Computed example of a mutant assay.
Amino acid sequence: MKLGARPSASIGPEKMSRAGGAGPRHVAIIMDGNGRWARAHGLPRAEGHRRGVEAVRRTIAAARELGIEAVTIYSFSSENWSRPAAEIGELMSLLKRFIRSDLRDLHTKNVRVRIIGERHPSDNEVQALLEEAEELTRHNTGLNLTVAFNYGGRNEILRAARKLAAEIAAGRLEASQISEQDLAGALDTADLPPLDLVIRTSGEQRLSNFLLWQSAYAELVFLPVLWPDFDRSWLEQALAEYARRDRRFGGLDPTER
């Protein structure tokens, strides 16, 4: 199936597993294209962001229905602070409204909300709402929804390295004993399943400083759809592409040995 063509029928978890083995446990999404969507429709960028929030709701619902264990969304990068102040204000307002209007529903549906990234003091109300979302849903056992806010992959690795350096300085760890598992355990995503699939919308083909360590052996799927138009059928298309991939993690196909 060519990427860009919508699937002709709905794909349930059982179809995905028969088509190509187990589906991904952990899916990350770079939600790109709100501004271009707004421009294409002759609307202000703020409307593109608002429609993008609706796509988030559709995606969470579809992920639950398709049996995905964890979804991580790139909501606001550490580089996004360089955008115009008015746009940043609109994005923060949308985030506040989303939490206030959707948090109880997510909690009722057993979704656990987690926030990764560096805490930012510029908006105490946003910070308080994010912490409320984490605390309310802390013991939920359904879909893990991780929101990357004020997040940058390089910064995450830097913060993890500093944690390990502090352990060395305190005499609790030897530098020569540090393993990949130690560093992975110091990352924001330490208690999430390994990342299986990264989806980016809008046709751009780069990670943009998102989950750099975790993406080392993840499958990457780039879709031409702009984020406000993303829905279950596009998610299914990405899952179908994932099912066709041969994940070797650096090894050989058993038939080639």
Rank of each mutant, 00 (worst) to 15 (best):
L211A: 07
S176Q: 10
L173G: 03
Q177A: 15
L192Q: 15
R112K: 15
L91E: 03
D191T: 13
T146P: 04
T141P: 00
E135V: 08
L106Y: 00
A190N: 11
R206F: 05
R104P: 07
L197T: 04
R206T: 05
W81L: 03
A216R: 10
L158Q: 13
G203Y: 01
I115S: 11
F149C: 08
R162W: 02
A186L: 09
V147A: 05
S82C: 06
L95G: 01
E167D: 14
I178L: 14
G142L: 01
Q127C: 11
L94S: 09
I115K: 07
E219G: 04
N150C: 09
L145K: 06
G153N: 02
N124E: 13
E125F: 10
G89T: 03
N140C: 11
G142C: 08
R154V: 01
L129A: 04
E131A: 15
V111S: 01
T141C: 14
A165Q: 15
L95K: 00
L130N: 02
E219W: 09
Q205A: 15
P193D: 08
L187R: 04
E118A: 13
A166R: 15
Y151S: 06
L164Y: 09
E180L: 13
E180P: 12
A190Y: 10
A128W: 00
S82T: 13
E131R: 15
A218C: 07
E131Q: 13
E167P: 07
R83N: 04
R119P: 09
E174Y: 02
L129C: 06
E131V: 14
V126T: 10
G89C: 01
N209F: 05
N110S: 14
P194T: 04
M92D: 00
A175H: 11
G203I: 03
L207E: 06
P84L: 05
E134M: 06
R83M: 08
A165N: 14
N155R: 15
G203C: 09
R112Y: 08
T201Q: 10
Q214I: 00
I168S: 13
I168P: 11
S122L: 11
L95P: 00
H107I: 05
E87S: 10
R159V: 00
L187A: 06
F149Q: 11
W213V: 07
A169F: 01
L173C: 11
A161F: 13
L187C: 12
L212N: 11
H107W: 12
T141F: 07
E167Y: 12
W81E: 09
R159C: 06
S82E: 13
N124R: 15
T137I: 03
L91D: 00
L129N: 01
A166M: 08
I99Y: 03
L183I: 13
L129P: 03
E204W: 09
A133W: 02
E125L: 06
A170Q: 13
D182V: 05
N124M: 10
P193S: 01
S202R: 14
I168C: 12
L103H: 03
S179A: 08
R112E: 06
L91R: 02
